[in-house]
Design a binder for these strands. Structure first.
Lengths: 335, 335
DNA sequence: TTTGTTTGTGCAACCGTTTGCTCACTTTCT
DNA sequence: AGAAAGTGAGCAAACGGTTGCACAAACAAA
């Protein structure tokens, strides 16, 4: 088997405690002993057993990242890799590892979250989907297990979270259209289960009101953050005889679906209908036409999320914290 | 703290062993006792401590996925989420968790791989970058630690691996161009450190030879799998006065870079230069123009990789195995 | 009744580390 | 010189499980 602390202890003629303390850099070990042991560890190619260490410590250097959405699709959303990079970059600096799990439903999410927390395998959790009602959040709160949610949760004062200012995003996009003379602006949201939809919608309405444009409920439709939905939603809208001259898609995939439909039907973007999305991805630029979108800065969202989590795990504060990551409207040819 | 096996044992008036055996579904426990204990576990909200269990078992239900590439960019390649989904979907079915780590260099990779293996935290590893020379592979082989590499490794007979038939991919793409009358076909590869470049190049040459088209070395250039490189490579090529009428890009990002350059310079794709990429992504379709590319079926690559790993961990075979995942040329308007 | 099986459970060692406490040996102070 | 303080290291119990072996009880066969 692998070489253990005991093997080192024997070879060095000391007790295992001494070796352990050497590893922990305990000042009670003399320089001479320490060096002798370190040398032996090197020679014998010793690597500490994290599992045993975790058991003794009752803590690990692993955090769990839980992605809720269709198992096969969740990772594929352009948002995911970027936020994961953000998490990973800070985790890496702090020598944390990342355990990821994708789940299909809120029920499964709760199961996974409970397992992560109770099994002792992770020391903290980042939740990547925030429904308005989220049983996992309640569960974690009640267990007092460190966690951060990405996306504003319901009980925003009692949990750590990071998000953009989604009201602002909705507002900015709408205003952008209004300023360019568009008035029939459709709003394609994701499911109203998510705060992100509600918040962006709020911003949308606010902008319309400020500019004295009536809010037309029939211009507001909801679906999911997948590409097919964008296609279906705009098709349905136009099928009902409702013809917007601008479309705000709450997600880049939604926007792609919309444009695909419009292209197929021979409608010109932005001449016939202007389209803007949220979640800037590198590819937006190559799009036909290049897509105006809001860069939500997913990398920072991830990085911030980990920072908050780290602080929570280290019990650096007793109250809850949040971070609002600035988003930026990037105007391209689609509007 | 959390409720343990001992708490259950006390409550049920049995020994911890009995509880442990109940969990393990050991047939030596009577039905009556089993049911009493299961009920208590439910009531007392017991969750097994994975760490303790792993320590006793000397194995975990966690596999490590190591991505080599720039830490901040590695996850962002469209290839990654898809392959990760593939891994995750099979892992999920087998109740495995996934620990991911991105590293910047072969040296770091080896460090992480060693840690994953020796620390006991993972029971198997999937390597997501296969250089021709890969010290991690040697390390893992020598430790006899279960692992699978995605991409054909150097010592292909002594490790488990999955890949496409890259010679075939190179061949098909080249043939596709030749059949459409293109003869000045440039080949943009990634670094020759990777077998994938070498194999596709081999296929490229083979196709040319079969059709009696001379191989012109100046049409063959290498870079990295990032978007900027595509731009730079084609710029350099054309700058040197070499004007291909078709370009094979070994990666979709490379292809995007090429097209960006061509668009900027006012060249028409495919009229002036035809472009094809590898690694079909959903967005290829929306591209301007829609990009001909080879779908490498990354999801299957991931799924197969996990299946092989699982078999290895379970010692289901003693020899090494491999899987070749079929790739498919998807012709769109860019060629 | 004795012997042999089968069945269900407990004992105790073990997995590899950590850590509170104890203790022997120095050093320093009075 | 004796006491107090400081230093370096070991003992043993924990962390929460698993498992080989022993063993008692129940039952069957002789």
């Amino acid at each position: 088997m692998s070489v253990t602390i005991n093997d080192i202890a024997k070879a060095a003629n000391v007790s295992p405690s001494t070796v352990s303390r050497t590893i922990a850099n305990n000042p009670r070990i003399s320089k001479k002993t320490r060096e002798r042991i370190l040398k032996l560890m090197e020679e014998m190619n010793y690597h500490p057993n994290m599992i045993a260490r975790s058991l003794a410590n009752k803590s690990t250097k692993i955090i769990g990242v839980v992605v809720t959405g269709s198992t096969e699709k969740a990772f594929q959303h352009p948002f995911f890799p970027e936020i994961l990079s953000g998490i990973a970059s800070i985790a890496y600096k702090n020598k944390y590892k990342i355990l990821i799990s994708s789940v299909n439903s809120a029920t499964e999410e709760k199961k996974v979250v409970t397992e992560f927390a109770k099994s002792g395998i992770t020391s903290g959790i980042i939740l990547l989907a925030s429904r308005v009602k989220n049983p996992s959040v309640d569960e974690l709160k009640q267990m007092k297990f460190p966690f951060v949610v990405v996306g504003r949760p319901e009980s925003e004062r009692e949990v750590n979270w990071v998000d953009n200012d989604n009201v602002c995003i909705g507002y900015d996009l709408t205003k952008h259209f209004i300023e360019r003379g568009y008035k029939e602006i459709a709003f394609l949201g994701a499911s109203p289960e998510f705060n992100v939809t509600l918040d962006r919608l709020e911003g949308y309405k606010k902008a319309l009101q400020e500019h004295n444009i009536p809010i037309r409920d029939e211009l507001i439709v909801n679906g999911k953050f997948v590409e097919d939905t964008g296609y279906a939603l705009i098709q349905e809208l136009i099928g009902r005889g409702i013809m917007p001259n601008a479309v705000i898609a709450c997600d880049v995939l939604l926007a792609f679906g919309v444009i695909r439909y419009l292209n197929e039907k021979g409608m010109k973007v932005p001449d016939d209908i202007a389209v803007a999305g949220v979640n800037n991805v590198p590819l937006d630029e190559y799009f036909n036409p290049p897509l105006t979108s809001v860069d939500v800065n997913a990398f920072s969202l991830g990085a911030k999320a980990f920072e908050l989590l780290l602080a929570d795990m280290n019990k650096e504060y007793t109250s809850f914290d949040r971070a609002i990551v600035p988003a930026k409207l990037i105007v391209r040819k689609s509007t």
